[in-house]
Design a protein around this nucleic acid. Structure first.
Lengths: 327, 327
DNA sequence: AAAAATACTGTAATCGCTTACAGAGTATCC
DNA sequence: GGATACTCTGTAAGCGATTACAGTATTTTT
């Protein structure tokens, strides 16, 4: 499960029949190398797929590490991924590793060797996934991927808890705003919703399932249109906080109050987004920590397996007891 | 303009009166160090603010670089920043540098030293900005920041071109969907819009300025509400592609066709979002390249200055000649 | 044809850190 | 008290690259 030794400047030198100094000079485009020698060296470098090790260059002061800092407000736009980045960075540093942006080719494959990779948003048959597997390079996926190392939140359990929360508040007409069906996440959250209904003997009504795609805008349009077309519900479980935000806006625009008229639950608990909504918290820090632990296992040569990270219902201001309207 | 030498394991050893081997053992939590010695070493490390250099650790095989790969679909959600990340990574590698995720403290300040920083979305009086300036650490900002090194697209020029395009298609009632006024970007794009109107002798009408916040949802709601309340226009310039998407949805939902009824122009040209809309292209690759160039200048000790990167109007399917309705 | 200049190339020290090994000091045992 | 074990610490080689310096050919100059 380990990638083999990368060629070094010494390997190139030996095969090209020159010294490491000359190779280095070619590498840094310094003058004073015979054109033929230069070509020969370049040829060998290409044949070996040689990539200079930045760590060594840095040690000699020739390469610099550049950090990147994201303003907190940026989180509003890219909350989940920024959070994950941050926690991954922390978790890795605590293990003496670091997270580096790697340049990729057109197919999205890394051009520079790293010891392991963490993939966000891969799908089955992702070419990058296959490439990593063939090259036996350690990798961990965020999401569910049988046969590989993966980490994922307990989506089904979270959805179950969210729906149960609404049920226990007395709601019976509970709509569910889904993510795309082609995403495992969306499917699992739908499943949790159904199982909760079942457990509480509330019949599942297909027309209460609203097709979303994790985007705020679609959530808004779907919810508004549904309501305007006469669909009625007193509880709404959105498969993400971002969709919950869209749903809340739609409900407001059709004249409904949250939570008095409709109780709303989201999913993810993204700090900058859903500050005030009842939601299911994903512990992104734990996910990042688990990913790093699995990566180390993989590097040590274990058997691939997945890991579920528990989630937790966080009750805030968008849910309340069902108001029974006395006619 | 250069950060001074960081303390090394040797400095710690000298001050603690031990050898580097012992410091290393403390660092790696290895057994076999006298508790008192350990404490002494830790005290010195803290006093010096010593942070082990990952590059050196990596060289000895103790630290690993971990890459991170984002799936192309992820771009849909975080298009601008992912793009910028990718291009920055490429530009840096070409210069023998690399982009590293750095862990930060609660205030967002980096805990690990890097040679320079690139800041996204900073604001004036950003504490991180001041900290970097005080420590005389090189940094480049994306956006306009007089007194520092900065790179920004030609927002005003782009907005001017977008508006002119609509004007030349015969539109007179041109609405503008703004970004937040507290963002320089939004203000500059508004300015370009106004200047274009002025140049074409079309009176500026304040009520045609719709307050957006760069979010798709707000764009949708603002445009829909405006139209429903009777505001009329045949051209709409949105200050971002994401807002253009929201606006397009709103127009569709109130029964209008784009571009037959309303011509729509966006800004940014984000590949996964605005594939089909007429927009102003930001050359993110060039922005990244400029940022790196400026960073190198800064490292070499120059005078801070900014740099504008030109933008370009890309005409696609959402704009057309104004249809003159013959009664 | 010898001296000088030029064009290449190799050698070895160096960067900061880890770690195998050796050595010094102290405690334990008979 | 001397051998043995154990605890702690220092020494030095090595990781992959860069680069000043010192060669060795080759060419040019006189």
């Amino acid at each position: 499960m380990d990638n083999r030794r990368m060629p070094t400047i010494g390997d190139v030198a030996r095969l090209a029949g020159v010294s490491t100094g000359t190779v280095s000079r070619v590498l840094n485009q310094r003058a004073g190398v015979h054109p033929q020698t230069r070509e020969r060296v370049i040829a060998v470098m290409e044949r070996l797929g040689y990539v200079p090790m930045q760590a060594a260059r840095e040690l000699t002061g020739r390469s610099d590490t550049v950090g990147i800092l994201l303003a907190p407000e940026v989180r509003r736009y890219i909350p989940y991924f920024v959070l994950l980045f941050e926690h991954l960075t922390d978790a890795l540093w605590r293990e003496g590793m670091r997270l580096e942006e790697t340049p990729t080719d057109a197919a999205g494959l890394p051009l520079t060797p790293a010891r392991g990779y963490i993939l966000l948003g891969a799908h089955d048959h992702d070419p990058r996934l296959e490439a990593l597997q063939n090259a036996k390079i350690s990798h961990v996926l965020i999401g569910v991927y049988p046969g590989a190392y993966w980490v994922a939140p307990d989506d089904e359990g979270g959805a179950y808890a969210a729906t149960r929360h609404l049920l226990e508040l007395g709601h019976h007409e509970i709509a569910h705003l889904t993510g795309q069906p082609q995403h495992q996440v969306g499917r699992e959250r739908l499943l949790g919703y159904r199982k909760a209904l079942e457990a509480y003997r509330v019949p599942f009504q297909p027309h209460l399932v609203l097709d979303g795609d994790f985007s705020t805008l679609t959530a808004y349009r779907v919810v508004r249109k549904a309501w305007e077309q006469g669909l009625r519900f007193t509880g709404l479980f959105a498969a993400s906080d971002e969709m919950a935000v869209g749903a809340a806006a739609a409900l407001e625009d059709v004249g409904l109050r949250v939570p008095q008229d409709v109780s709303l639950v989201g999913f993810d608990d993204l700090p900058e987004i859903g500050a005030a909504i009842t939601t299911v918290r994903q512990d992104i820090k734990q996910i990042a920590g688990a990913a790093v632990r699995l990566l180390k296992e993989s590097l040590a040569g274990g058997m691939p397996h997945g890991m579920r990270v528990p989630v937790q219902l966080v009750v805030r201001g968008t849910t309340s007891l069902r108001e029974v309207k006395t006619a």
